[in-house]
């Protein structure tokens, strides 16, 4: 659908919000692939698993719960990426759009940032999971989060089309580092001198959410009721 909307806009002009037609098409494909790679998660039901006591059998085994969940996540992402690549491959073969291909340098940065995005989203998922230590009702906060995420991570449209003040505000949050910044580096729209700044910001968010998780999980385990009996 995004492809159709943007195609209509590009019929009357060659540049929309700083993107030419090839860049916008590349953006749409890349956002879809990153959605499968970064934002899709097997852990959205983690809070329910905690609240219902389903994680008890994992906690009893000589394996780190977080390693186990990480492997579940990787397996799920593998499946998502395969499905996205097949779907995108068919679309590219059918419509043969112009796709912007990055340089070797930006490809490396792109892959590192994509890995960072995966870790950041994993930490978000774990954070939402901790709600299950205290409440069975996690649907509301998750729904609000995903609605906000759709807009703020650049899934529906590139964040560059937003007013400057809103963009600045969004960059005070971790959301642009989930998929939007990865698309920008892929398209070569991030200046070399900014790469280090954004890499540091991404790393900082990862460290911050890691520490927050550590605190909340420790607190949560002390409250864990291991229900189900």
């Amino acid at each position: 659908m995004s492809l159709t909307v943007w195609s209509v806009l590009f019929t009357s002009q060659t540049n929309v919000f700083g993107y030419n037609r090839a860049e916008m098409i590349s953006y749409i494909f890349m956002a879809a692939i990153l959605h499968g790679l970064v934002l899709a998660s097997a852990l959205y039901g983690l809070a329910e698993r905690i609240y219902s006591g389903d994680i008890s059998s994992l906690l009893l085994k000589p394996v780190s719960l977080f390693s186990y969940l990480a492997i579940e996540e990787v397996a799920d992402k593998g499946r998502n990426i395969l499905a996205t690549l097949i779907e995108s491959g068919i679309l590219i073969a059918l419509f043969q759009p112009e796709i912007v291909l990055p340089s070797a340098y930006t490809t490396v940065v792109f892959l590192l940032w994509a890995a960072g995005g995966v870790i950041l989203n994993f930490l978000f998922s774990l954070l939402f999971g901790t709600l299950g230590f205290w409440s069975p009702d996690t649907w509301g906060p998750k729904f609000l989060f995903f609605i906000f995420l759709d807009f703020s991570a650049g899934k529906l449209f590139p964040l560059n089309i937003l007013p400057d003040w809103l963009q600045s505000a969004l960059f005070l949050t971790p959301f642009p580092y989930l998929t939007f910044m990865q698309t920008q580096v892929f398209l070569g729209k991030v200046a070399i001198d900014k790469i280090l700044i954004h890499s540091s910001a991404l790393l900082l968010w990862i460290v911050l959410f890691y520490l927050l998780n550590k605190f909340l999980w420790h607190w949560g385990f002390k409250n864990y009721a291991a229900q189900g009996q």
Binding site: L59, L60, K61, P62, F221, K222, Y224, A225, A226
Partner: peptide, 28 residues
């Protein structure tokens, strides 16, 4: 005793381990 619940108070030792520490050597 299995280390799933954190006690409010008191001491537990199973096979010489504190179950709450969930050490691999204990869980095996």
């Amino acid at each position: 005793l299995a280390g799933l619940l954190y006690p409010t108070s008191g001491e537990v030792s199973v096979l010489g381990f504190n179950p709450w520490n969930r050490e691999n050597a204990f869980q095996k």
